[in-house]
C-alpha cells in the first residue's frame, strides 16, 4: 500500500480544484454541481462547501446522482447492484453541469452518469471533476476537465480515497491486490 496524497496534500488539492471551478464558473449562477453516488458525494460535499466559502454564494444548486440502473454490467456481475438515493431537486435544462466522482478508471461510471443525467433534461454542457485520474486505463473516450492527482496504475491495483466523515481519516492510497 502506498500513500498518494496525505492529509495536507489532499486539502491543498481540494482547495485548488475548488478555485479552478470558481475561475471557470464565476458565481455559479448558471452552473449546478452533481456528485455521483456512493463515494463521489463525499468529495462533492467538500468541494461544494469550499466553493460556497470562496464565492460567498450559499445558493449553489447541488444534487446527488445514483447510476445503478444505468450501468452496463447489471447482469455480468454475480450479484445485482443495490441503488443509493438520487436527489436532484432542480432543473438541469440549459444549465452547465459539473459531475464529480472520486476516482476515474475505465470511464464506464461516467458514461452511465451521463446517460442518467440526460434523463433529467438537456444541460448546456457537462464537465467532469475527479480527485484521482488513473490514466491509461480508460475503456471509453472520456477525459476529466479538472483533475486532482494523476496516477499510472495496472489493473490489479486499486485506488482508495478515505474521508474523515466516513472512514475517520483523509488520505488517498494505492493498494496492490493479488
Amino acid at each position: 500500500m502506498k500513500t498518494l496524497l496525505n492529509n495536507i496534500q489532499l486539502q491543498l488539492t481540494l482547495q485548488r480544484l475548488a478555485h479552478q471551478l470558481v475561475e471557470n464558473h464565476n458565481n455559479f449562477s448558471n452552473t449546478v454541481i452533481i456528485g455521483i453516488q456512493p463515494r463521489g458525494i463525499l468529495l462533492s460535499d467538500r468541494i461544494v462547501k469550499m466553493v460556497k466559502t470562496i464565492t460567498c454564494n450559499n445558493n449553489i444548486s447541488y444534487g446527488k446522482l445514483d447510476i445503478t440502473f444505468y450501468r452496463d454490467d447489471v447482469h455480468t456481475t454475480s450479484d445485482i447492484q443495490l441503488p443509493s438515493e438520487t436527489d436532484i431537486s432542480f432543473n438541469i435544462e440549459g444549465k452547465r453541469v459539473i459531475l464529480i466522482d472520486d476516482v476515474l478508471h475505465t470511464g464506464r461510471t461516467i458514461r452511465s452518469a451521463m446517460d442518467a443525467l440526460i434523463d433529467f433534461g438537456r444541460p448546456a454542457g457537462v464537465e467532469l471533476l475527479v480527485l484521482v485520474d488513473r490514466r491509461f486505463s480508460r475503456e471509453l473516450p472520456i477525459h476529466p476537465d479538472y483533475t486532482g492527482y494523476t496516477v499510472d496504475t495496472i489493473l490489479t491495483q486499486k485506488v482508495k480515497v478515505y474521508w474523515q466523515e466516513k472512514d475517520g481519516k483523509d488520505e488517498v492510497v494505492l493498494i496492490d491486490k493479488k
Binding site: 445514483d66 445503478t68 438515493e85
Partner: peptide, 16 residues
Amino acid sequence: NFKQVLQRPIKKVPSL
C-alpha cells in the same frame, strides 16, 4: 428508489 424514478420527466431506466 424506483418511486423516485417515476417522479422524473423520463420515467424509465435502462437496467433490464
